[in-house]
Design a binder for these strands. Structure first.
Lengths: 253, 253
DNA sequence: ACGATACACGCAGAAACGTGCAAGACCAGG
DNA sequence: CCTGGTCTTGCACGTTTCTGCGTGTATCGT
């Protein structure tokens, strides 16, 4: 049995039965209680369960099913997403970019959070259809298949008609000198248009993006309020970006 | 065994069993674990699987049950969808409504068919992202959650900027006197706007819709070119509709 | 307060990992 | 048919990660 699989199993148990007894699970799976405890400790550290004496409980009854769903997204992205989701104020409006990290943010939005999500990603829209309180606004246009988002003139134009408190932007490269970059010019323009419609722009960058640059510039650092990353806060690039006046939000790297 | 073949095998395993254990696969195929790991690394780099210690997991649980979900598409809808998909001419543009039947149409589009699909449904867009040759155009707007499509003024306005050869419309009720109906006024207006932008409008109606009517009128029969249904061609309503000059396309009921 | 249970920590063996390297397969051009 | 180049594959190596056990500590129920 794979370690990751075991973690999923634990989250599954949590949603189905509402609790986990370390001893029982260890006996069921034929592994040591230590392993179960270790897993539970990790999950608790990520906010996916609440550790109690003898086992674990769901962190809150409402979040159980989304926790299970997001269990498969890579660790780094999930951590970044959790921090980003916490930035969305109740009743506020957030512009959410496309990409897997942004998708993780969508999944990390608390089920009891009433907010408006504006996005050009059909994938993210689909993921939030089930969200009980989120109001969704989809920016249409020609779909750029590589990243599964709406791009082009029509999409940029649609973006001009919205405003938000916050823009959460995913990028391909995060580099001190090059700024934020991505691999497609249309996409870069779209991201720029989105960022321009929000009071604050925060960048989602799991650690593998740090220190890399792609062909097309999205934004200079002056336009960015903060960087959310699970990379080491002492990383050269992170330090440099901080020196440029960008708030660094560490996601427990 | 060819490398590409091996990759397919891995992806197959992933969807069938939901996980891959590198060691087991290596033993099964009689190759080294290194090769398996290399393949998994490549697949992960392409976003086709998620690498975990000991093997790999599907990128998202949704991928696993995708096949299962598709299998549960009721027979009727699938037949209707197949007939509808065959109406899309190579190189042509089709406006695709939202709803489960339309989703089935999207899935039924041949992979080698180059066409433009215009839709206000993020779900359908997401389903067609993988389609190798389909050009996608998404109509944005406020998302009406009940049916997961963009509705409202912005969406209708966006629809004014497109034209297509064909509009495939899903409805809730198909009735000889009441015409085509659905349960929400905004949605009805949106469907009307879509139908107005296409040269021909065909209605997708699996048999359970025939003879029923909902609260809001979408279109009168005069605006409809054809009705695609798996219902009995001798059904009273079908006969009546045919008498109104609407082409009936039987989907092998 | 006390025994029982659960816990965290450290350790060591085992398993899985990435990388560099060399042998072989494959392909294209002469 | 040969030759040079590229790509793939398996192996060896050092490294990282996981797992189970022992130990001592904290927490629970009585």
């Amino acid at each position: 049995m794979l370690a990751a699989e075991r973690r999923d199993h634990l989250l599954g148990l949590l949603t189905r039965e509402g609790k986990i007894v370390a001893k029982d699970v260890a006996a069921d799976l034929g592994i040591s209680e230590d392993s179960v405890r270790r897993d539970l400790r990790d999950l608790a550290a990520e906010g996916l369960c609440q550790r109690v004496y003898g086992g674990a409980l769901p962190v809150s009854p409402a979040v159980v099913d989304y926790a299970a769903r997001q269990a498969v997204t890579p660790d780094g992205k999930r951590k970044v997403a959790a921090v980003a989701a916490a930035l969305v104020p109740p009743g506020g409006a957030v512009i959410l970019d496309g990409g897997t990290t942004a998708l993780a943010v969508a999944r990390a939005l608390p089920r009891d959070l009433a907010c408006t999500v504006i996005t050009h990603s059909p994938t993210i829209t689909a993921a939030l259809i089930d969200h009980p309180k989120a109001e969704l606004y989809l920016l249409g246009g020609r779909i750029f298949k590589h990243s599964a988002v709406a791009c082009g003139a029509a999409a940029v134009e649609a973006a001009q008609n919205v405003s938000a408190d916050l823009c959460l932007l995913g990028v391909t490269g995060v580099h001190a000198e090059a700024g934020l970059t991505t691999g497609d010019a249309e996409e870069a323009a779209m991201k720029r248009a989105l960022a321009a419609r929000a009071a604050d722009t925060y960048v989602l960058a799991s650690s593998e993006k740090i220190g890399t640059a792609s062909r097309f510039r999205v934004l200079p650092w002056s336009e960015v309020s903060g960087l959310i990353t699970d990379a080491d806060p002492d990383h050269e690039t992170v330090e440099a970006v901080r020196a440029l006046g960008v708030e660094i939000m560490a996601a427990g790297g």
